[in-house]
Every structure is written in structure tokens, then in C-alpha cells.
Design a binder for these strands. Structure first.
Lengths: 237, 237
DNA sequence: TGCAATCCAATTGTATACAAAACTGAATAC
DNA sequence: GTATTCAGTTTTGTATACAATTGGATTGCA
């Protein structure tokens, strides 16, 4: 069983036990856009749905807030995070800084087994699209990037990339232009080809342009920030 | 009151209320090397010391584990983290990737107020050394780097740097060579001078060499990993 | 009718009680 | 003498009970 199957949540859980299951389940739902940004995650609701106590629910929500998939507002509850346009730009600037170089490192450490994993990933993406499950395809697409960072064998940076990919999923949910088609197929395939040839320069360049493509499919023009309540601005704490 | 005074813990707390106070206090103690890597942080002990319930203690410990200052072992408790040599190398590779470029960005956004903050930081470092409090000096020194990342106004990357600096403090506690003197004074001063002149190239270069200096003062030769118990290797979970 | 103050239901924050797991050390078997 | 087992103690994991806060509906008043 490979890592893909072992970690369907993306985010390496930072909690253990029942809370980890809950975290995984919520994380996956958010990544697949079944839970939309802004959705309230009530503790009682979750505790009933998953059959655990609020103690466990709170641990999972706190963990999710640490990876910024969830926003905790004191005394008000947990909500699926809504990154602002400014944050969206930052996320992709950070990805542009980290991922191309990581792709190069991955090239140097590539193995046959790793290549096979990446290809099975792409196949799974295609299958998800064919089956009319764009949410799952999107999640797998993010996981592809994470897999590369793990192959590069830089766990610290991989951890950062996990967070950035997670946040990217929320950003895509909020700011994706309808017109633009999501065709990661070719980009990911081109990356794998570069890996196979051991061409680090090409891998780095492909990753760079792939990220640029994603950003250019987003509508990040300045618009009034997602409703900010007076409370958020003025609250003493 | 500037940010320095507001956030003496380094780590922007990801929890609120009493748990945040506890997190800040523990974080500061770890940064100042009053709490050493490997120290057990018992829940009952902390709850008695701080006069809060274990519920709050657990929230703080979980938050600290998310920034990797604390390691949680299921059913065994919380310990101040002990990064391995391998992790230490990764952390400084990541810093080398992020911080020089961030220093350049900071140069572009530098203001008089920000410069003043950085200088008051250096002054505080000197004072701490003069008063024979090397722990506090070390903490302030880390905070200097974080302040730069905030000036660069890239909060996403600043968050990563916060984590890396925090982890660096643990690494220094574990692997610092006795012989080498900690003389960040000059490095930090040189950085500020570059900022003052608006010389982005110089700031980037200074940051790069500063980080190299730190790493070269560490003893990261391969030694038997910090005692790994059989349990850690063989435990089913 | 419009506005404001107030009360009430719902939800989160914290403490505590109980369950489960792990460590300790003494007794026992070899 | 060494290793092992097992009970007791300690510590962590989870559930539940209670307190505090919020948000909205209701009521009172101009």
C-alpha cells in the first residue's frame, strides 16, 4: 500500500486516534469542495455525525485550524476558511518559491517506484474526471504536488507545501474563473516526462509554468474583501 | 506598543484565551532554553502550575506540537521536541531558501519605523548579553529574523519562518559547538545597514552568509540518533 | 413604525469525572 | 542472578456536566 492510499487527507494528521479520522474526513471533504469556504462546522453537529464527544471534535477542529483549512473564531465556532485575495496571491508566490526547486530535487532522487506512483496518480485523476467527479480530481491533483515534495525527501519543505496545496484548494473554490478549463493533465504529464528523463532544468521550468497557469486561471482582481463584519474589525480580542 | 512586545512568544498563537497565555509562556521558556529538548511536560504538572484545567493544558500542548516545539506521543504525553541531525539540516536548508529572498523583499518595503524596531531589537540583544542572560539574547535574536519576515509583508512565508526559527532554537540547544562564539551582533548590524541603504542585493547576501555562519557553528556530524527507544521503532501505532 | 434594551435559546469554553493505557517495582520462576 | 509476570500507581484519553458568551427574538418606549 503506497502513501497515497495511506494519507487520503493530504495533510499529515497532527493528531492521533479518533480525532485523526475526523480530521481526515473533514480535510477530504474540504479538498473536494463538498464543504465550501465559510461553512459553519458546529461542534454538536459533528459530534453527532461522527459519534464522538465534543472533546474529540474540538481537537480535530483545532488541528484543522493549524493548517488553515478551518478558521476558529472565539466564542463563535469553526468555519471552513475563506482566504482573501491577498492571501491567495501570497500562497501562490510561496508555491512559486518552493515548488520549482523542489521539483528539481525530486528529479535527482527519482526512482522507478516513485515514477510509478506519480503515473498512477495521473491515471487516478483522469479516472475521476471520466467518472464526473471533479472534486476528487482536484484533490488528487493537489496530492500529486505533495507526492513530488515527498520524493524530493525534504520533509520540512514538504510540510509547507502540504499547507500551501491545502490552502490552494480553498482559493480555487473561491476564485476559479468559470471560463478557464482545468487541464492539469498535460502539465502533470510533462512533469513526469521530465522526471523520467532526469532533466532537472526541465522539471523546474515545467513546475514554474504550471503554477503560473493555475494562477492565471484565477480571478484575483481586487474586489471588496469577502464580507468583513464590524465585529471582526472592532472586537477587543 | 510594537509587535515585539505584543508577541514575546515568537509563534503567533493559534489558540485564544487562557491556552494562548500558556502557549506563550511555554514557547518562551523553550526558546530561552530553560526547558530543554526531551523534557516531559506532564499535563497535571502544568495544570497545577498555571492554575487551569487539563483541558486548557491539552489545547496549548496541541498547539505547540503543531509548530513542532513539542512532540506528542499518544498515551505517553508531551515532550519538548528533539530535532534530529537530519531535521536540523533540513531546517537550515529551508531557511536558506526562504530568508535571503525575504530579506530582499523587506528592503523594498523598509520604513523608518521598521528600521527603528530592528535597531531596538539589536539593542535588546546586547543588553541581554550584558546582563548575562544568553537565553533571552538567543530568543531575541530569533525574533529579529521573524521581524524581518513581517516587514517583508509576506505573512504566509513569515509563518513558515516563525516555525523554522522556533525549530532552530531547539537545534541550537542540541547541536551548538561549545567552541564557537555566538556573535550575531555583527551579522544583524550588517543587515540593518543594508536595509538602511536600501541595498537589496547586499541584504540578501548578508542574510545568506549569516545563515551559513550559524550552520557552521553547529555540530551536525552523523552521530547515533538521540536515543531511540525500541518502543518508538516497534510500536504498532 | 422605528429603535433600543432585555431576555432566552443555542453554542462555545472550561472543569471535572471516569475509562484506558502505560510505567513501576516487587514477587516469583528459572 | 537474571528475566518475567503481575498488581498498583500514575498518566493520558474521552465523555459529560456546568459556566460563559453570543445572536436573535421579544418587548417596551418614543
Amino acid at each position: 500500500m503506497n502513501r497515497i492510499a495511506e494519507n487520503p487527507a493530504f495533510i499529515t494528521p497532527t493528531v492521533t486516534g479518533p480525532a485523526a479520522k475526523l480530521m481526515t474526513s473533514l480535510s477530504q471533504a474540504i479538498h473536494e469542495h463538498r464543504l465550501k469556504p465559510g461553512t459553519k462546522l458546529g461542534e454538536d453537529d459533528l459530534s453527532e455525525i461522527y459519534g464522538v464527544s465534543r472533546t474529540v471534535v474540538r481537537a480535530a477542529l483545532q488541528a484543522l485550524s493549524h493548517v488553515q483549512l478551518v478558521e476558529l473564531k472565539r466564542n463563535r465556532g469553526a468555519f471552513v476558511a475563506k482566504p482573501t485575495i491577498r492571501e491567495a496571491r501570497e500562497v501562490f508566490e510561496a508555491r512559486a518559491l518552493l515548488e520549482p526547486r523542489t521539483a528539481r530535487s525530486a528529479t535527482e532522487r527519482m526512482t522507478d517506484a516513485a515514477l510509478a506512483r506519480l503515473e498512477s496518480h495521473i491515471a487516478a485523476e483522469h479516472q475521476a474526471i471520466a467518472e464526473g467527479e471533479p472534486g476528487r480530481a482536484l484533490r488528487l491533483s493537489g496530492q500529486f504536488h505533495i507526492e513530488i515534495s515527498h520524493i524530493a525527501d525534504q520533509e520540512t519543505i514538504a510540510g509547507f507545501i502540504e499547507r500551501l496545496v491545502a490552502r490552494s484548494s480553498l482559493i480555487i473554490a473561491l476564485y476559479w474563473k468559470r471560463e478557464s478549463a482545468l487541464c492539469e493533465k498535460h502539465a502533470h504529464h510533462a512533469l513526469v516526462e521530465a522526471f523520467r528523463r532526469g532533466d532537472g532544468d526541465e522539471a523546474e521550468a515545467q513546475m514554474k509554468s504550471h503554477l503560473i497557469d493555475i494562477v492565471s486561471a484565477l480571478d484575483l482582481r481586487d474586489t471588496p474583501e469577502p464580507e468583513v463584519s464590524l465585529r471582526d474589525i472592532l472586537a477587543p480580542e
